[in-house]
Amino acid sequence: MTVHRYRDVLIEVTILSDAERGGWLVEFWDLSPSGSGELLHIQKLPTGELLLDLLGEKLNVDLVAWAIGIARTELQGY
Rank of each mutant, 00 (worst) to 15 (best):
N60Y: 03
L10E: 13
R21P: 00
G23C: 15
A19M: 05
K44V: 10
V26M: 10
K44R: 15
G69D: 07
F28Q: 06
G48C: 15
A71V: 09
S17W: 00
E20N: 14
I15E: 13
W66S: 09
Q76L: 11
I70M: 08
L16E: 14
I68H: 00
P46N: 06
V9R: 11
M1P: 06
I68Q: 13
P46V: 13
L10W: 10
D18K: 05
L75D: 02
V9C: 12
L45N: 02
V64P: 00
R21F: 15
K44M: 15
G77S: 06
E38F: 03
K44N: 11
K58R: 12
G23E: 13
L39G: 14
E74S: 13
E74N: 07
L59S: 14
S32G: 12
G35C: 12
R7D: 10
G69A: 02
L52E: 02
P46T: 13
T47V: 10
K58G: 05
W29G: 00
G37T: 03
E49H: 13
N60P: 11
Q76C: 03
G23T: 14
W66H: 08
V61T: 06
G69R: 00
L59K: 06
G48W: 12
L16M: 03
E49L: 11
L55Y: 04
R72G: 02
W29L: 05
D18R: 01
I11P: 15
L40R: 12
V13K: 02
V64Q: 05
T2N: 08
V61C: 01
E38Q: 09
P46C: 14
K58M: 04
L51A: 05
L16P: 01
R7A: 14
L63M: 11
R7C: 02
E27V: 04
L54G: 04
I70C: 08
E12C: 01
P33R: 09
Q76T: 07
A65D: 02
I15S: 11
H41S: 07
D53R: 10
L10M: 15
I11G: 03
M1F: 08
L10A: 11
H41G: 06
L51M: 10
D18E: 08
K44D: 03
R7G: 09
H4V: 14
L25D: 11
L75P: 03
